[in-house]
Amino acid sequence: MPVFMDLHIGQGLTAEDIAMAHQMDLKIQGDFDCKCLTYWFDKERGNAYCLVDAPSKEAVYELHRNSHKQLPDEIIEVDRRVIKAFLGRIHDPEVVDYMIDQKIKVFNDPAFRVLLMLRIRDRQRLVHELGEKKAGEYLNAFEKVSQHQILKNNGMAAESGKGVTVATFTSAIQAVICAIDIQNFLHNDLEKIDLKIGIHAGQPVEKNPGLFENTLRFIRFICCFENSSNIIVSHTVTNLMESAQNSTLLNSPSVRCISKADENFLKSLIEVIYNNWQNPLFEMKDYLNTMSMSKSQFYRRCIETTGHSFNRVLREYRLHQALEKLMKTEKNVAETAFASGFNSPSYFTKCFQKHFNIHPSEYLN
């Protein structure tokens, strides 16, 4: 049976409200063929997220409507394995704040998470450049260091493979410490493995339907375009650390903090690119139609935030998407080129080889 997460945003609920609502759901869940697994409640932001085994979104909605009438703002289907990887559990936590009438558990466990992304050259490219043995040594060293530091700093490895590792943290300071420690331990290997580190934070569901999709899109993007070995920290994370009076680590020479204005600009840029990268006819003028910005202003902002022109950002984003397609699908080079927004396989091949230092057909094989 599918698993759904429903979200209640800014409805003025308290931890006790959510606990009692969850108990009401449990009493009648069988009437709707549902099984209420657990919930998360974020007192600071006033948001709640419920996890339910159900035959459909409609069943979840009707369950809430008939039990307590606290209707969800949105319901999305999720993978329970992904939920556990990113949020750490799919059942109620073992430790609760207190009990109501000795039977209703009350806890304040936010679903807000800080995400750390580590991106390195994938195995195919490392083998191509260094040979099987040396590539294996670098990859083993990276995996050993990254996994150890993630666990040491109370993080959870949520995704790993194909050159990308994502870890989740409940603390911004621990995520930043983890990133600095990983970079320090691997300082001799940074150039060879081309380590990129990005840190951002967010709710499990925001504007886009995938779990932590907005947060993941943002750090994937900044990890693609950062040319140095800096640790890139979003303004959202910087703000969390400043609020907790733990911002001294951000003064490290290896850390680059994104300003609030740059983060907002990048979010809008990412949204437009994500929605249009497969369209070979999409151009900068199409984007400017959605922004209150002149061409010269936009060009300057794009250079300031990414280090590249818009056309280059779009092209390199398409190349990274093409790289992932070659890893995961059975498409040939021409099919991958067209599916990635290129209207010429030969031009795609030229750009791919220049950017990744390997011919796409060689990479595919």
Rank of each mutant, 00 (worst) to 15 (best):
L151T: 00
I104D: 03
Q124K: 14
F41G: 12
V313L: 07
Y347T: 15
T14N: 11
H22S: 00
M117P: 02
K144H: 01
D6S: 13
E77Y: 02
K207P: 08
S309F: 08
M99H: 13
C36W: 05
F342E: 07
F218N: 05
A59Q: 05
P2N: 03
K295S: 10
M291Y: 03
L240A: 07
R113T: 07
G10S: 11
M99Q: 13
G307A: 10
F142C: 06
G307P: 09
T236K: 05
K105L: 10
I222E: 07
T236N: 03
G88M: 03
K207I: 11
I232V: 12
T238C: 07
V114R: 07
S247T: 07
S160K: 12
A157I: 12
Y39A: 04
L249C: 03
N246S: 14
K260Q: 06
E316I: 15
K57T: 13
L116D: 09
E191I: 09
R65K: 15
L151G: 01
Q124S: 11
A21H: 06
L326Q: 10
Q70S: 13
T349M: 14
Q278R: 14
L269I: 04
Y347A: 15
I197S: 01
I100P: 00
K207H: 11
E62W: 07
M20G: 06
M20H: 04
D25A: 03
R301M: 13
Q11V: 02
Q70T: 13
Y274F: 13
V52M: 06
F352N: 10
P110I: 04
P55L: 01
H91D: 13
M241W: 13
D189C: 04
G210H: 04
K133Y: 10
E74A: 15
C178W: 00
E316D: 15
L71N: 09
I258F: 02
L115I: 15
I18D: 06
E62F: 03
M284F: 01
G30V: 02
F352D: 12
K134W: 02
K285W: 07
N214C: 11
G163S: 01
K260V: 00
N311T: 11
I219H: 08
P345W: 10
M293C: 12
V255A: 05
S229M: 05
D122F: 02
D25H: 02
M5D: 07
S252R: 06
A15E: 14
M20N: 05
